[in-house]
Amino acid sequence: MSENPKFKEDEMKTEKYKSVVQELLSLAGIEINGRNPWDIQVNDERFYKRAVTEAELGLGESYMDGWWDVEKLDEMIFRIVRADLQNKVRRNLKIALQLAGFYLINMQARHRAFIIGERHYDLGNDLFQNMLDKRMNYSCAYWKNAANIDEAQENKLELICKKLYLKSGMRVLDIGCGWGAFGKYAAEKYGVEVVGITVSKEQVSLGKELCKGFPVEIRLMDYRDLNEKFDRIVSVGMIEHVGYKNYRTYFEIANKCLNEDGLFLLHTIGEVRSVKNTDAWTHKYIFPNGMLPSIAQLSKAAEGLFVIEDLHNFGADYDKTLLAWYDNFNTNWYKIKEKYGERFYRMWKYFLLSSAGAFRARNKNQLWQIVLSKNGVPGGYISVR
């Protein structure tokens, strides 16, 4: 019986794609079905075509579908990012068109502001309660002299308070307040009054409960609707959802709301290069319409509005933070698995561990805390570490 020519052709194509994947991964010291904990174990041969033609979307989705596994996912991604492989695989036309919206329209416009809340932060408070620290901080912790995630997150909150030179009686704005972790801490430890805003209904609901008894008000609103004065402003992990078309507006709002002698602390993940979109997998599954700013983009947007007093990079601490979150998530998964399902587990595992690997690489994702003033601090700002 003669061999099916269609089958033979498909087999040859698979081998071609496999060869490309092998060659690329070898640049990062990764083998297919190798013995190292970062070596990829392929369960489905269709993975090769998907990885080559769909780049980061194909890599992530095929993991979610169980087409490949790896013992140490974070170590594998660390090697991929360190070797800059993500820029050596071209996106296909379909994916490029999907991301074209970042250039053609304002993906973070006012009428789209609540999408991220609905599709990410409103996934369920139970998910985040089983993953985060006891104060519910969903941003990079500060691990200096910390033994665990609870201590590291309190360190971060204390660091922010000290950098802002908080004093009792001050009125503080928290743009992107999450579940109110900063507001409650600052009100409790420093005697300030805090107004926090978020685009997540679930965060407002639980945040109000967690901050009960403290002078902390949590509002469901877009930052563009702010129009009142504050002594201090803090924004932790929120500008990643603002988008490059809106950076200037964001700083204009902050400038308008900050008293003349006030301080503004911006805590953000950042890119070493200026970009105008995000990777396709993250956009589709984790942070729709998200975008990481660069220092160049931030400084240009703040020009004429703020003086940059201090810039502190502790991006290496996000690696530890993400691993701590994954450990909590994995340990507590049995409590919530019936609600979310196995594919969600693989998606969330991929999100947390691939992010840890990317921060570990140090040549792409960074974490900055930037302190800004409107007119320059008289006598100079004294940095806090």
Rank of each mutant, 00 (worst) to 15 (best):
M1I: 11
S2W: 13
E9G: 07
M12E: 15
K18T: 02
V21A: 14
L27N: 13
A28D: 08
E31S: 15
D39Q: 05
F47G: 05
V52Y: 14
V52G: 11
E56R: 10
G58H: 07
G60K: 10
S62N: 11
Y63D: 07
D65C: 09
W67V: 01
W67H: 13
W68P: 00
V70R: 14
E71N: 15
E75L: 12
M76N: 12
D84L: 10
Q86N: 11
N92D: 14
K94R: 12
A96F: 13
L97G: 06
L99V: 01
L104M: 11
M107Y: 06
M107T: 14
R112S: 15
R119C: 05
D122W: 04
N130Q: 05
L132P: 00
K134A: 10
K134G: 07
K134T: 04
K134V: 00
N137Y: 14
S139D: 03
Y142K: 08
Y142N: 06
N145S: 10
N145V: 06
A152I: 00
A152G: 03
N155G: 02
K156D: 06
E158R: 14
R171F: 09
I175T: 08
I175F: 05
G176P: 10
G180S: 04
A181M: 05
G183K: 02
G196R: 01
G196K: 02
I197T: 11
V199A: 12
K201R: 12
K201W: 10
K201S: 11
L206S: 00
C211S: 09
G213D: 12
P215G: 06
M221R: 00
M221D: 03
R224I: 08
D225P: 00
D231V: 00
V234A: 13
V234D: 12
E240C: 05
Y250K: 02
Y250F: 09
Y250V: 03
F251P: 02
E252P: 00
E252T: 03
I253K: 13
I253T: 10
N259R: 07
D261M: 01
L265V: 01
L266D: 04
L266N: 09
R273N: 09
V275S: 05
N277T: 12
H283G: 04
Y285A: 00
I286Y: 09
N289E: 11
K300F: 10
N313A: 08
N313P: 01
A324R: 04
Y326T: 04
N328S: 14
F329S: 07
N332T: 06
N332V: 05
I336E: 11
K337F: 02
E338G: 13
G341D: 05
E342S: 15
R343E: 11
M347D: 05
A358M: 11
A361E: 09
N363A: 03
K364P: 00
L367W: 06
W368I: 08
W368C: 07
V377H: 15
P378Q: 11
Y381R: 06
